[in-house]
Design a protein around this nucleic acid. Structure first.
Lengths: 188, 188
DNA sequence: TTGAATTTTCAGGAAGTTCTGAAATTATAG
DNA sequence: CTATAATTTCAGAACTTCCTGAAAATTCAA
């Protein structure tokens, strides 16, 4: 298991990027390696390819499993565990987004909710609450939207993205239609 | 400058969250403090409120300036520099997204482009390139879309988000319309 | 069972980062 | 200019995170 120039560059880059995010270098590299690997790899192969200690790889894989970013499987007549990255790139991004939501966004939202509900002690508190409410509403809207939209078919999503800013025209069209047909509730 | 219970909780939470992202605890707290402050604060006030050394605050503010997340201003008859967080929450998120794109996404895209263009040395390389291309295309589509959509009015964006998954209906409607009116180019 | 293969845990050293106080630099009022 | 206020820089101490090798635990074939 020795890496080609091409894959090595990819793996190293992901290591650096990983450490910019919460994920550490080792974990980033392991993930990148699995992503470009043609077949599932076992821990020894990973350790050799990346020149990490066996135990480091074990911990990295644990981390990736907790992020649900790797699949564990067994090959016939081989006791070792083999790991691979899910094939569908859209699914990978969805998982990543979902996990981050659970770990970072949800706790933030609940902290904000608590703070907004609390009785303000003075004018400064009232102002702070106003600011927190603005942030809360934006985050909530964005996550609900994300939640909603990530369940669409990748093809639909692609279509929407390709539309880009022209989605505005579509929205305007929709509103006009509502006016013409005399629908009562606008927006939601 | 002493913090109310309410603001302190917010500030501490942001400190922790900050360290989950690349941003460190100090920087997260400084930002949170400015975000809920009614008026611009100077470095000494920040240092006192958060019980950080003056120099630590100085470095934190530098970092925030490099992310374009704080505004620097001067008050009449006061030599000190006063800092504040932009008021528009949507603008804040846009800035954050833009900066991350510049620092993390763009370099990744160019690395991927380079790797995809390179001549593959063997079958494994060819496979790796296929995977990299999938990732490249998804990231590129998503960033182009983001770029496009972030220029829309916050109101339009809100409307789109509230629509959520029902956007699918709108897309279908659009396609039917195209068929009916006999438009030639579909999608883009 | 036993024992070899495999994986996990963990103490502690290595590496990296954060934070401080002191000194240097910069800005400006007089 | 000079003196003082304000800010920045920086070496190193304090703290955190990462990584390893050794030992423990688990798994499974025989």
């Amino acid at each position: 298991m020795n890496l080609s120039e091409l894959s090595r560059e990819f793996v190293l880059h992901f290591g650096e990027m990983g450490s910019r995010w919460g994920i550490n270098r080792t974990v980033g590299q392991i993930y990148a390696l699995l992503y470009v690997a043609e077949r599932p790899l076992n821990a020894d192969e990973i350790a050799e390819a990346l020149a990490f200690s066996r135990s480091n790889v074990s911990m990295g894989l644990k981390e990736l499993e907790s992020w649900r970013l790797v699949r564990l499987q067994h090959l016939p007549n081989d006791r070792r565990e083999y790991f691979s990255a899910p094939e569908d790139v859209w699914a990978i991004f969805r998982t990543l987004a979902e996990e981050r939501r659970k770990r970072e966004i949800d706790p933030t939202l609940s902290m904000l909710r608590g703070a907004i509900m609390a009785t303000p002690a003075n004018e400064a508190d009232r102002f702070a609450q106003k600011r927190m409410k603005e942030m809360h509403d934006l985050i909530e809207l964005a996550t609900m939207w994300f939640n909603d939209v990530q369940r669409l078919e990748p093809e639909t999503l692609k279509q929407l993205m390709k539309l880009g800013a022209r989605v505005q025209k579509l929205l305007e069209m929709k509103d006009k239609l509502k006016v013409v047909t005399g629908a009562k509730a606008q927006g939601r």
